[in-house]
Each structure stands twice: as structure tokens, then as C-alpha cells.
């Protein structure tokens, strides 16, 4: 088991989501869904170890996440989020090289990530001129270069058009099937992701429901309301 959430609640002055229990196995893909503002990003931050829990414990490989040092966390969890930083003069390659050296990254990892995300032709382009869709793929490739067992993605498909989204889907299924990477991601456009998902976590009314199989889109929508 890679991740274990035991009776956790997250939030700020008031808890947003409480008494959450869930388990994630290696190589699973978990989709987190919920309306805007229900606490998806906050819960993801708790899994990244950068959000204090109001109660309960998050364990990574059986060890409480609060007991990990920053360096250890960076070797276990890579993240992708929606922010688009200003990277004056950076090329795509510069971004992919921005991973912790201690993970022992090699040139071959970068080549592999470029190929997997089909962005070899962008390699030497400056990131500031990329489209949002291209940029999102670069950030996914960067997370792959970090070579962690777990990748946590906040809305990775939000800027993507249909074709891009289809392609990102391919990347995800290859990552989990070929590399055994575990993926936890939040998404509003989750319909196409359902066919490769192992679990769907639905947040509504301050609670989280874990769905293990037989995801039907309409059922999830009903729960969200």
C-alpha cells in the first residue's frame, strides 16, 4: 500500500472534509471529484504533506507523512498544478532538468519523458511561448523526470482541448501500467478518465465517498449535487 488515509479531516478554521478513510495501492489511478471549493486542492495538499491535518493521519509507505523530511518527500511525490509560472528564458529542457539531483536523474529519463509526452519537438523552445496545453504536458513530463512512485496532479486536464486530453489519458495509463506509478488527480472533466481509473473519490457535503468499481458518470454527478 502506498497511501493510507486514516480518519483525516482537512480545512482551515472550519473543516472542509472530515472523517476521510481511503487506501491507495501501487499503480492505481485515483480521481478526486467535487464541486468548486469543496476542498479538493486542500485534500491533495494534505497528501503532498504541505497541509496540516485537523485530525487523523496520512501514511506514505506505512510511515506518517509528517515524519518525512522535505528531501524524502521530494523523492517520493512529484506534483503538477494549474499555476503557470513566468519562466523568462527557460527552455522546455531547463524545466525538465528542474528536479532534485538526489533522485539520480539521467539524460535518458528526460528523453523518455519527452517521448512519452510527445514533446520532443518542443525540447529547445522557450516555455513562455508555449500554449497552455503544451505547457501542461511539459509540467507532466517534469513530474515524470522526478522519478517518484507517486504523482499528485491538481486539474491536469483543465487547459487541454479534446485531442490533448485524449493524449494525456494515454500518458497516464502508460505511466501506471508500464512504470507502476501511482497517480492521484483532481478533475472536473473526469468522464474520459473513468475508463482508466481504479478509484473515484467523491467529495460532497463535507464527506468523501470512495468508489472502487462500476463508475457510472451519471451516478457520480448525482452524488455531487
Amino acid at each position: 500500500m502506498i497511501l493510507e488515509l486514516k480518519n483525516i479531516s482537512v480545512g482551515y478554521s472550519k473543516p472542509l472534509v472530515s472523517s476521510v478513510d481511503a487506501e491507495v495501492l501501487e499503480g492505481e489511478l485515483v480521481i478526486l471529484v467535487g464541486k468548486n471549493g469543496v476542498g479538493k486542492s486542500t485534500l491533495l495538499n494534505a497528501l503532498k504533506g504541505i497541509q496540516e491535518l485537523k485530525s487523523g493521519t496520512v501514511s506514505l509507505f506505512g510511515k506518517a507523512i509528517v515524519d518525512y523530511s522535505m528531501g524524502e518527500l521530494s523523492r517520493n511525490i512529484a506534483v503538477v498544478n494549474t499555476a503557470r509560472p513566468v519562466l523568462n528564458g527557460w527552455t522546455v529542457l531547463d524545466v525538465l532538468e528542474s528536479t532534485d539531483k538526489s533522485t539520480g536523474k539521467e539524460k535518458s529519463v528526460i528523453t523518455e519523458a519527452l517521448a512519452l509526452c510527445q514533446i520532443e519537438d518542443l525540447k529547445l523552445k522557450e516555455v513562455d511561448v508555449l500554449s497552455d496545453g503544451e505547457f501542461q504536458k511539459v509540467m507532466i513530463a517534469r513530474a515524470i523526470c522526478q522519478q517518484t512512485p507517486l504523482i499528485i496532479l491538481d486539474e491536469p486536464t483543465s487547459f487541454l482541448d479534446v485531442i490533448y486530453r485524449e493524449h494525456v489519458l494515454q500518458i497516464f495509463s502508460e505511466l501506471k501500467d508500464t512504470f507502476g506509478t501511482t497517480l492521484v488527480l483532481s478533475s472536473h472533466n473526469f468522464a474520459p478518465l473513468l475508463k482508466i481509473a481504479s478509484q473515484v473519490w467523491v467529495i460532497s457535503h463535507g464527506k468523501m465517498e470512495v468508489m472502487q468499481s462500476d463508475f457510472d458518470y451519471d451516478g457520480i454527478i448525482q452524488r455531487l449535487k
Binding site: 504541505i50 522535505m70 521530494s74 531547463d94 524545466v95
Partner: peptide
């Protein structure tokens, strides 16, 4: 060192790369 580079990616990314 390279933490300065990581910082430019944004706080979230910097944190996930081990920057305090």
C-alpha cells in the same frame, strides 16, 4: 543553488522539490 531555480516554478513546485 538549484533551489533558486525551483523557486521560479512556484511555491508549490519548490516545496515538492524539497525547498523549505
Amino acid at each position: 543553488g538549484s533551489k533558486l531555480d525551483f523557486w521560479l516554478l512556484g511555491e508549490d513546485y519548490a516545496r515538492s522539490l524539497g525547498v523549505n
